[in-house]
Amino acid sequence: MLNINFPKIDKKTFNDLELSLAEEKIKINIRGKNKDFFTKVGKITSIILPTEANTSSSNEKFNALWLSPDEWIIYFDGKDTNKVINNLFNEISKLNFGAITDISDHWVCINIKGRKTFDLLSSSSPFNFNSFKKSKNNVAQTVLNHTDVIIHHKEVDDVNLFVRRSFAEDLWLWINDSARFL
């Protein structure tokens, strides 16, 4: 047996704030430009990739986040990596319609929720959350304490924060330290 180890992230509760690891999740980076690409993605995931900048779309299983005009992340709860990724890879990468890359372990998902969520993020991100926080399904790629993050505004005052695995523990400790001062 090989054991699974995630970065050391324990659930923490502060006033109006709850922080926790939101794993395990499958995350797939998908790149593509042409019509066939969008059709294939739609067929396999039943999701329409958002084309509007800084937004996301979701269905019962999948969340698709806009990253750039030809790049998205699809993420969902689960472990059956092979099936969806292989489907996408065989139908898109192999046929040269785009690129499918498994990045489930490249990013770690941290969930932050509560009334002070955006207060917390503002302590070390230059991003303007004023309108971002007003509606869900917004997505931002920005920096938090000089670390690259992707922020998905999933529900009201409830965000999934994606950080690269190697940075995760450091950012986690930083976020906890920030939360003390809210």
Binding site: N29, R31, D70, N96, G98, A99, T101, D102, I103, S104, D105, H106, W107, R164, R165, S166
Partner: peptide, 12 residues
């Protein structure tokens, strides 16, 4: 060029 680059440093 039809090329896509994706960082996977932390994936493996």
């Amino acid at each position: 060029l039809d090329v896509f680059l994706t960082s996977v440093t932390d994936q493996y």
